[in-house]
């Protein structure tokens, strides 16, 4: 219960930061100032007022980039996570409910998909699609739908063997109708839990792609880009690396703990 609130609280904070980024951020996240490069955070010797978490090697304000980065992280989390959930759940429901060759084909595709190292697959896809936020989102959805499809397929299979589905068949309901009213509501909690976990994964994948310089342009404030930049400055300005790492750490932790908390909350059977 506590973790659900803590995790939810962090995510809400992140959402506020993302939505109101232009008004909250103390500086322009893109403004470079070579006279202000590698300023330490406000609690350290030699800081400048207004640059609370210091600046990076180009004199850009770390806190402002962090806040604007939250925007990109959440956009990716919501869109990529949502798309993966949609594709995966639909295919999983179809495979589990239809059975037969539909199930075999989808199962085979899942097998093939799971034989790719996901990070390499993502890098490959983004390289093919061209760098940019939309490629990152598409890549994550194209790769991670299997996470949903596998679980939802199994759940649907179990659900369709339940007596209430059988009785719906007996009274002559259509297959699609049964799927929509009897099966989907029962697998929905699982989808939500997986979605929360997937959003955390999406944030990480975006960071990884930015880290290898394949997400959006390196000027734009992304956490992964900041980490890549910080990695090169690690001995001169460690705060450039620490700030986005901490943000990433808590965000990923929050998404997964939110999912786990949700699991305990909505569906004791899932445990």
């Amino acid at each position: 219960m506590v973790r659900l609130w803590l995790a939810g609280g962090w995510l809400a904070l992140l959402l506020v930061a993302a939505v109101f980024a232009p008004w909250i951020a103390p500086q322009d996240p893109l403004a470079q100032d070579l006279f202000l490069e590698r300023l330490p955070p406000v609690w350290a010797e030699g800081h400048e007022p207004g640059y609370y978490l210091g600046t990076d090697s180009l004199g850009r304000d770390v806190l402002s980039r962090l806040i604007h980065g939250a925007r990109i992280a959440l956009i990716v989390a919501i869109l990529a996570g949502g798309a993966a959930a949609l594709i995966g759940s639909v295919l999983g429901l179809l495979a589990g409910y239809m059975g037969g060759w539909t199930d075999r084909v989808i199962g085979r595709v899942i097998d093939v998909w799971m034989s790719f190292p996901p990070v390499l697959f993502a890098i490959l896809l983004v390289a093919v699609l061209g760098t940019g936020l939309h490629s990152v989102i598409i890549a994550i959805a194209v790769i991670d739908w299997t996470r949903f499809a596998r679980v939802i397929r199994a759940e649907t299979l179990a659900q369709s063997r339940m007596d209430y589905v059988a009785s719906a068949v007996v009274i002559g309901r259509s297959r699609l109708g049964i799927l929509a009213t009897e099966v989907v509501p029962n697998v929905l909690p699982t989808i939500l839990v997986l979605l929360s976990l997937e959003m955390g994964i999406a944030v990480i994948v975006e960071a990884i792609l930015s880290f290898v310089n394949l997400s959006i342009s390196s000027d734009d404030p992304t956490w992964g880009g900041m980490i890549a930049e910080g990695r090169t400055q690690i001995h001169f300005a460690p705060w450039v690396l620490v700030a986005p790492m901490v943000a990433l750490f808590f965000t990923v932790l929050a998404f997964s703990q939110f999912g786990e908390g949700l699991k305990d909350r909505i569906d004791p059977v899932l445990r």
Binding site: I234, P238, M245, S256
Partner: peptide, 23 residues
């Protein structure tokens, strides 16, 4: 376990670089 499970290898790597490579 809950914490190590949530944090992916990429982040652990960064944390270790920072802690045991720099600090």
């Amino acid at each position: 376990n809950g914490m190590t499970l949530s944090i992916p290898d990429f982040l652990w790597g960064l944390i270790f670089i920072l802690l045991f490579g720099v600090v």
